[in-house]
Simulated scan of single mutants.
Amino acid sequence: MLPPVMTQSPLHPYEQWFHGHVDRYLALAGEDAFMVERKVRHTRRVLAHARAILKEIKPGATFSHVVEVATLLHDVGRFPQLVDQGTYDDRAGFNHAEAGAEILESQGVLAPLDEVDRRRVLDLVRYHNRAVVPEGLDPDTRLGLHVVRNADKLDAIRNNLKYLNPAAPHGKALKAGVVWHDAEVSPAVLERARNRQLIPFADIRWSNDFILFLCCWLYDLHFRYSFRHLLSSGRFEELLGRLPDHGPLAELADMFREDLERLAEEGADPLS
């Protein structure tokens, strides 16, 4: 009996291009090559989260394929950003999401897709790092963007936890000049957190501001998988553990815990 024919994954052509793109920047990154490798591992974990969300919401095959392609390619702009700017900080004048969409379009990476799906992938890549989802997107693009952004945030919380201490190497968590302090918090940040609002990065001054910034991502998640992963992994609790155990920040931590437990049971509107 002949062995079964092994068919290529629908992601295969995009995987091939992605590996070539990464290899090019690995060769250019020099002593920062380890940062390229970290971003590749991040991409793999984000793709795993996105697939878990897709398994939960059970959309059509075409929608799932578009989201998987966009998730695999969402950070391709990070590699030229690192090599050309020496940083992964978008506020240094290089928007990695916009750059990623331009790279994909100029190099014809998405040629196997039809026009509608090609534009949707570009939108998911272009908007995945926005502070808020743009208005006016069609429902499928909005839903797909939520999948990519949820998956990205879940891994970003994991990554930031590694550096949320005053002795963090390379200043990764506090790279924007944020000052580590056990007790200080900006009043405007505290007020936004109490109102369950997202916190603008421009408002962040202290390390507790940054921790609250990450905690408030809870209110930008849209799928039961996302809430349950934060709860079961223990990472959200670890994040809350970096806040003072007394005063208004401890009260906020209790609010976040209650909200996460409720959302893990009830979920949220996936199109909100």
Rank of each mutant, 00 (worst) to 15 (best):
138 D>R: 03
125 V>L: 02
69 V>H: 03
96 H>Q: 15
157 I>S: 10
81 Q>Y: 07
76 V>W: 12
32 D>T: 07
183 A>W: 04
77 G>M: 15
9 S>T: 08
128 H>D: 04
2 L>P: 13
28 L>G: 01
184 E>R: 11
20 G>H: 14
270 P>S: 13
8 Q>S: 13
110 L>D: 08
71 T>Y: 02
128 H>T: 00
104 L>R: 07
18 F>G: 01
86 G>A: 10
95 N>M: 05
251 E>V: 05
5 V>F: 07
19 H>E: 04
248 P>M: 05
251 E>W: 04
98 E>I: 15
94 F>Y: 15
21 H>K: 10
53 I>G: 03
129 N>C: 10
68 E>L: 03
47 L>A: 14
234 G>N: 05
190 L>I: 09
114 D>N: 15
193 A>H: 01
193 A>S: 11
197 Q>M: 12
138 D>P: 01
160 N>R: 13
204 I>M: 14
72 L>F: 10
128 H>E: 00
86 G>Q: 12
48 A>Y: 13
142 R>C: 10
212 L>N: 01
55 K>Y: 07
199 I>S: 04
135 E>P: 08
9 S>I: 04
118 R>M: 03
118 R>I: 00
257 R>E: 08
63 F>T: 11
56 E>G: 01
78 R>F: 15
196 R>T: 01
56 E>C: 11
219 Y>E: 07
180 W>I: 13
152 D>I: 09
29 A>V: 05
130 R>H: 14
253 A>H: 10
49 H>T: 14
95 N>Y: 11
53 I>P: 00
268 A>G: 07
39 K>C: 12
147 V>R: 02
212 L>I: 11
191 E>V: 08
119 R>Q: 15
37 E>T: 11
24 R>W: 10
98 E>R: 09
138 D>H: 03
6 M>T: 15
130 R>D: 10
110 L>V: 13
210 F>E: 05
77 G>L: 05
19 H>P: 05
147 V>S: 06
234 G>P: 00
232 S>N: 12
264 A>K: 00
212 L>Q: 02
241 G>P: 03
34 F>R: 07
210 F>T: 08
191 E>G: 05
166 P>A: 12
219 Y>N: 10
29 A>N: 12
157 I>R: 05
207 S>V: 03
78 R>A: 12
15 E>D: 10
151 A>P: 02
92 A>K: 14
206 W>D: 12
32 D>G: 01
266 E>L: 15
64 S>C: 13
243 L>M: 00
263 L>Q: 02
46 V>N: 06
236 F>H: 00
201 F>L: 14
195 N>V: 02
38 R>G: 05
270 P>H: 08
246 H>K: 14
20 G>Y: 11
120 R>I: 03
152 D>H: 02
240 L>Y: 07
156 A>R: 08
74 H>V: 03
221 L>H: 03
44 R>E: 15
198 L>Y: 11
221 L>W: 04
260 L>P: 01
197 Q>P: 00
270 P>E: 12
68 E>A: 08
160 N>Y: 12
201 F>C: 03
165 N>F: 08
31 E>T: 13
108 G>Y: 04
262 R>P: 00
261 E>R: 12
165 N>K: 02
